[in-house]
Design a protein around this nucleic acid. Structure first.
Lengths: 249, 249
DNA sequence: CGACCAGTTGACGGATATCAAGTAGAGTGG
DNA sequence: CCACTCTACTTGATATCCGTCAACTGGTCG
């Protein structure tokens, strides 16, 4: 379930945690070359654009205003892990350690609109606008919580449970920001993306989704997703018949 | 690899991110009953004590001064996931969303010494001591980065790789804070804990560790760990013969 | 001495990865 | 308008990693 930061609605740049640091855009021309369109304070990127690249330093931080994306990393063995999906309201780039190089890539899945900030302005923010800084930390903490949930799913749930959990989570998150229409939300990612997010093979992901479709738990087609919340939640909780790994006290 | 926060050494309470908020301890007597020993500003707990319990609200935040612990969560199906191991320098409790209820448990593995803070003081900190607040956010960001790495390991590495990665990581982290003696670091956790952290069964964890021991990659016995860093790192990087799941462009 | 706990080992089965092949739709160029 | 290509999605067959079961060891604590 998505919990918006206190006093942070997500409609335009004025509501970003860093809003009072209006960005003067110190991108070089070449840095800007991949960008589609641009206006002061906002960055609009087409689908499929790599915003941040693993291994590259970045002088910027972003807030997602609209659109959906992916944060992923490549292992040394060539495998790809999707760390999380990006939704409006997410903050991008803090994880680098506030000052370092990216260890993950960020890519747009749909057209995205982002707020851009100078990393260097961050310290000013803390000094001059504690309220905004607090919001920022709040967002980081919530995100950390979500990552913990993901770890639990990857570690302890089987394929069906993981899919159920992921689809439910995506649906809830998109519904919470008002993107549901008659129970359907946009679902622009590929099966491969979901597979890479859940640590499953593409084939097994496909077959599991088919089963969820056949049983009426979730319908994902044509780029939209419909879910039977209650039944899907039951699935995500796991089979009670399955023996517990360890009673733990 | 552990990256200490700028200007934050980890020896005593004066160096906590929140150090200037000396804690007057608003624990009730009953809250305190489980604690072993107590002095102003520091909390000393015995091994095996549950500091924070899943589902409970907590008015406090902690910084680990010394000792080792575990942060874990229970799934609805009774399985346990260790989210991360706790080392000196870690900050505990922020993930609850800065104001909410715990969704994970924190337990001491060895005797731990902690700094205790009032959650309510956090806002004052942001307003009055931006430098400390910045450090705090920095810590949260680094932690988030580590969780991302964990997600990648759980999703994309097989059992041997995961174990190699985990042992290496623990060894490096403990070495970085000076707890290595002639290449050996304390390793107080059980195989079950490691298994729960890596999403593996206890049996398989045991057998994999045995193989690492037999091949001289890592020696874990008597509560201490020795590793052959280079060879273990090679293992963690994964078998290059294994086909790549997807070339990705 | 018995209970209990962490660690250990072998046998077996199942969930999931891999391999292989095929379908459908969108874009491209002749 | 028709090959041709490319990508996403499908589906069946086979292989294997890893989970589960069961039993045993050694240490500690009462």
């Amino acid at each position: 379930m998505f919990v918006p930061a206190p006093d942070a609605t997500i409609t335009n740049c004025r509501n970003c945690p860093l809003r009072r640091k209006p960005l003067f855009l110190p991108f070089s021309d070449s840095e800007l070359s991949f960008m589609e369109q641009f206006k002061v304070g906002e960055l609009v990127v087409a689908p499929g654009v790599t915003l941040l690249e693993e291994g590259q330093g970045s002088a910027h931080l972003f807030t997602v205003l609209s659109g959906l994306g992916i944060r992923s990393t490549m292992l040394e063995n060539g495998r790809r892990q999707v760390i999380n999906f990006l939704f409006p309201g997410d903050f991008i780039g803090l994880q680098a350690g506030l000052a370092g190089e990216m260890r993950h890539s960020v890519e747009s899945t749909t057209t995205m609109v982002l707020c851009v900030f100078n990393r260097a302005d961050l310290w000013d923010l803390f000094r001059e606008e504690p309220e905004r800084a607090y919001d920022l930390t709040w967002i980081a903490a919530v995100e950390e919580h979500f990552l913990g949930e993901t770890i639990a799913s990857l570690g302890q749930r089987d394929a069906t449970e993981r899919l159920a959990w992921a689809l439910l989570r995506i649906h809830e998150r998109l519904s919470a920001i008002g993107l549901a229409e008659r129970g359907r939300v946009p679902m622009p990612w590929r099966q491969q993306d979901l597979a890479d997010a859940l640590g499953l093979s593409l084939v097994h992901t496909n077959k599991t989704i088919r089963r969820l479709r056949e049983t009426g738990h979730a319908l994902w087609e044509g780029g939209t997703l419909f879910v039977d919340r209650e039944r899907l939640a039951t699935l995500a909780l796991a089979d009670p018949d399955r023996p517990r790994r360890r009673p733990l006290i």
